[in-house]
Amino acid sequence: MFVYTIRRSLIAIPTLLVISLILFLLLDLAPGDPTAQLPLTIPHDVKERIRESLGLGEPIHVRYALWLVQFFVNEPLHLLSELTGWDLADDRQRVISWQSRSPVVDIVMERLPQTLWVVGLSYVIGVLIAIPVGIVSAYRQYSWFDQVGTFVSMVGFSIPTYFTGILLILVFSVQLGWLPSLYDTTLRVTDWQSFLAQLRQMIMPVSVLALYNAAQISRFMRASILDNLNLDYVRTARAKGLHERIVVLVHVLRNSLAPVVTVVALGVPGVFGGAIITEQVFKVNGLGQLLIISIQANDLPMVQTLAFIFAVLIVIFNLVADILYGLLDPRIRYD
């Protein structure tokens, strides 16, 4: 397993390089001009100089090579300097956002906490709800619990989050006035009061996303448990005189978890990607919102870097899913 992990990690390097190249070429092909938003009164040759100052005058392979050096050498060196206090980076050029003229990585790090808090928490809550609901629904198939669960997850899965989000805002912010409709990123949790405020502004976005995630994952869990419940080994476990709880939670669950864990692990990169629409609805300035703004502003370095970070996360969590699968099911060993 260890050798397998190392091998897969090494294979990931060329994969990611190819992905970064494709991203770069695609973004280069995309129509749009970073100076398009500038006032029309700026003369053409000035705009041309601005473009050149952004590095757009260089041929594409040079620009790609520069991005590679900036992202893979300069950025880690800067990070290291910051962590250790030594001056390793000595003014090396970082990846700079065209829009804000500040380093892309710094902006990402600024926005990451909001996304992780709101989207990450909703994912964790979603999984924690989905697994027990899935187990009980499957074990008591066609019971009222299962029927209600099925109905709720169909609703949760088929109604888009921007609709449930707006619905919640209408009911709880507009009509009842209990919860704020905007997510205030500047809020710092310093005391009990601000903690409560933080909690209140998180309730709606988190529950919208948690419902969506739970709906999806609980269906997987239910189906997977149902697949196993009628198998022979379950009968053996019952014939041993074990308690039903042990039959289900030890024997059936271990077997049912593998496909669910895969789905859950592959969903994690999506957490970092932010829930683009939900972040827009609740004005959470997380990564999803950042991506949208950057695309609209033709901020190519930002889009390139964000897209590449998502690609890295997807590759990593694919590996994680495969490793977890192997750990859960001894029949799958990769060495």
Binding site: Y233, V250, N255, D329, R331
Partner: peptide, 8 residues
């Protein structure tokens, strides 16, 4: 072949 739990 199927009466034993494959993951234990």
């Amino acid at each position: 072949m199927t009466s034993l739990n494959p993951v234990l």
